[in-house]
Amino acid sequence: MRPFTLATATDAREAVRLVAGDPDAAFLAGGTNLVDHLKLGVATPGALVDVTRATSAEITDLEGGGLRVGAAVRNSDLAADRRVRERHPMLVRSLLGGASGQLRNMATVGGNPLQRTRCVYFQDVTTPCNKREPRSGCGARGGYTRYHAVLGASEHCLATHPSDLAVALAALDATVHVLGADGERSLPFTELHRLPGDEPERDTTLAHGELVTAIDLPALPPATRSTYRKVRDRASYAFALVSVAAAVELEDGEGWVREARIALGGVAHVPWRAHRAEAVLRGAEPTEETFLAAAEAELVDARPLDGLDGGNAFKVPLVTRTLVATLRELTQERES
């Protein structure tokens, strides 16, 4: 553990100035992941800037039914917000499916999507990891790959993104507001994370010193039904083996699929927006065959990994089965 300084920023501009000007500095929000990394030696910043008072902790209404969620809103507060509960059951389930009550009370909406992979080799400084130590090798390849990617991995990195909330935000077409040294910008949430390629040390498209200040949730058409299904090795306090965030709107609530938004968790370096599956669903009848075809389309390029205990080949059928079951649940007749 390296000694560091700790500053508390009272506004976003000050926070950005403190971090952008110091390559050795990092933002600290809820600390539920970074503090672990400090203790493990995975992160060794020389300066931390506490941003929990630098951004908004409010959830405000936007025109047209959308919501703006300040970056400092705690996960548990977002999950408890009446408007969010009414409009975005998928989002609430993703939040409540994550971590534990104590961690959700600490974690922030701005920080949660920026948490880093739980790949055991990334978290163990005695093993190689290209993400932690560029060009040191990938410890996961041929090792413990149960929680690793089947989509979009590179020869340098097999890691998955661990956030549940991020999967829901990717499916919802949320927008991220960012403040950097050069001013404000916004980007679609699906463009926040990046595939590992040959720079696995970069999880996101943010530049050093760019601070997430808020996330906008767009309104969904009123007939949309959404949910988040997390499949994991125990009933609580476990990362997803596979998760599915799905929102489906049927014509007249029972006919063909007007709109489908799907994102997958536990399968890639990013919350994986399932565009191919959505394309198959759009305009189709909501049948078991359609759902299966959607899953298969999305998994055409899936590449399961070898590894201890059979690697992660089980994830490919698991994604299919979980996606089909989730779509079935969202489209079947509601019992009166």
Partner: peptide
């Protein structure tokens, strides 16, 4: 390698 209580279930 799964030597903590998040990974050792």
């Amino acid at each position: 390698v799964n030597h903590d209580l998040a990974e050792y279930h």
